[in-house]
């Protein structure tokens, strides 16, 4: 029951937005790299990156299974021009308040076009084997395959 057309996965996550061999000195460095990748897509104004940092300072975006989902605040939404997601993998891992994060899924969203994709991410994280596959992904095809919504109306 999508209330608006669900964009194609490759529209939401551009092939150039899947970066699988990133490095970061700490979690805020990682968030800035995620923000830079979102900026590269043209989906955000640079001020959104500050909103992402602010959000992380308020409440961690760590969601479990080695994954964090950095995104902005409600106030930062004005800096979002279109819905876009990026996937950055840090093979060496980043210390995220005592948890290790390997994959960051950065989110910039104005509307609900990304909901199906995040639902699928939740599904992946609830299945340890799929979560491990996401952490180990070395090609964008693997990332697309894991995050493709497998919902009822995939028309």
């Amino acid at each position: 029951m999508a209330d608006e057309a669900t964009p194609a996965l490759t529209d939401l996550i551009a092939p150039t937005s899947i970066r699988l061999t990133e490095t970061a000195t700490d979690k805020f460095d990682a968030i800035r790299k995620v923000g830079a990748a979102l900026l590269d897509t043209g989906a955000i104004d640079a001020s959104y990156i500050d909103a992402m940092i602010e959000r992380e300072n308020t409440i961690s975006t760590f969601v479990g299974e080695g994954v964090a989902i950095p995104h902005g605040t409600l106030a930062g939404k004005d800096a979002v021009k279109t819905d876009a997601l990026v996937v950055l993998r840090f093979p060496d891992g980043i210390d995220w308040d005592g948890n290790e994060v390997v994959v960051c899924v950065g989110i910039a969203a104005r509307g609900n076009g990304h909901i199906a994709l995040l639902s699928q991410l939740a599904t992946v994280l609830m299945e340890p084997e799929k979560a491990a596959a996401l952490r180990a992904a070395t090609t964008s095809d693997e990332v697309y395959a894991l995050l493709a919504p497998e919902e009822e109306d995939s028309a």
């Binding site: 959000r55 975006t61 902005g72 409600l74 930062g76 995040l118 991410l121 939740a122 599904t123």
Partner: peptide, 15 residues
């Protein structure tokens, strides 16, 4: 509910 209703709440709601 989460701050922006953009990311975190979506994931828990879907599960």
């Amino acid at each position: 509910a989460c701050d922006a209703g953009m990311g975190s709440s979506v994931m828990l709601a879907s599960s």
